[in-house]
């Protein structure tokens, strides 16, 4: 464990907790893409399959359970909670996210390190996570008024994988100099997808004005 990875995990955890608190406190999920939340549940389920098989550390197991639990909780709130689900804007959240799941799965079948069940799903989860934010970003572009909590949530979610990039550089030089193209490139693409958002988010923060993404 290194500072970059711990910072990345804490940023990721903070983003999810922030979203959960926003939904619970305001009893609203306006501006949040259910599709991105569903994609994240698929990402965590396909990545944390080894949860009960391989024990790395208490931290690792605990965080996996927290990520799985909170992401499913958020989807439950948005789909089934009697009040919150009324605030979900279905006809704005239009991204066909199954057009992301299938290609990522096919790509994982073609490009992976070992052809084993766990490895294929792990690789699939990396590919899917790199594009999982797209429905949310598309929804933000349509939103005329992005509330601060939603903007901060997306910012933290994007920042966590950026911190992981530093973690991979650190591990490359301090551990075994192994090249890991699949997580590295997936993480790079994932972070690159946020650059546009990061620019407008930081600018709105500097100019103390409302966050607005160009349509």
């Amino acid at each position: 464990m290194n500072a970059f990875r711990l910072a990345g995990d804490m940023t990721h955890l903070l983003s999810i907790i922030l979203l959960l608190l926003k939904i619970r406190a305001t009893k609203s999920c306006a501006g949040i893409s259910l599709k991105t939340q569903e994609l994240y549940v698929i990402v965590f389920m396909s990545r944390y399959l080894d949860l009960f098989r391989t024990y790395y550390s208490l931290y690792n197991s605990l965080m996996k359970i927290i990520f799985l639990g909170t992401s499913m909780c958020i989807v439950w709130y948005m789909r089934s909670h009697k009040v919150v689900r009324q605030t979900y804007n279905n006809d704005e959240d239009t991204f066909r996210h199954f057009f992301l799941v299938l290609p990522c799965f096919v790509l994982a079948l073609l490009v992976h390190r070992n052809f084993t069940f766990i490895e294929i799903l792990w690789t699939f989860s990396l590919y899917l996570e790199s594009v999982a934010i797209l429905p949310q970003l598309v929804l933000l572009q349509k939103s005329s008024n992005i509330d601060n909590l939603t903007g901060t949530y997306v910012f933290l979610l994007g920042a966590y994988r950026g911190l992981y990039l530093f973690n991979w550089v650190y591990r490359f030089f301090t551990e075994n100099h192994r090249v890991r193209w699949i997580p590295w490139l997936s993480g790079l693409i994932q972070t690159a997808i946020y650059t546009d958002f990061f620019y407008y988010y930081i600018r709105s923060w500097k100019n103390r004005e409302k966050l607005k993404l160009p349509a």
Binding site: R5, D9, H12, D50, T54, Y56, S57, N60, M63, K64, F67, R113, W122, Y164, N167, W168, R171, E175, N176, R178, R180, P183
Partner: peptide
């Protein structure tokens, strides 16, 4: 081996 392939990460 498990250590190196980043599976110990989240």
């Amino acid at each position: 081996q498990a250590k190196t392939d980043l599976k110990d990460e989240l």
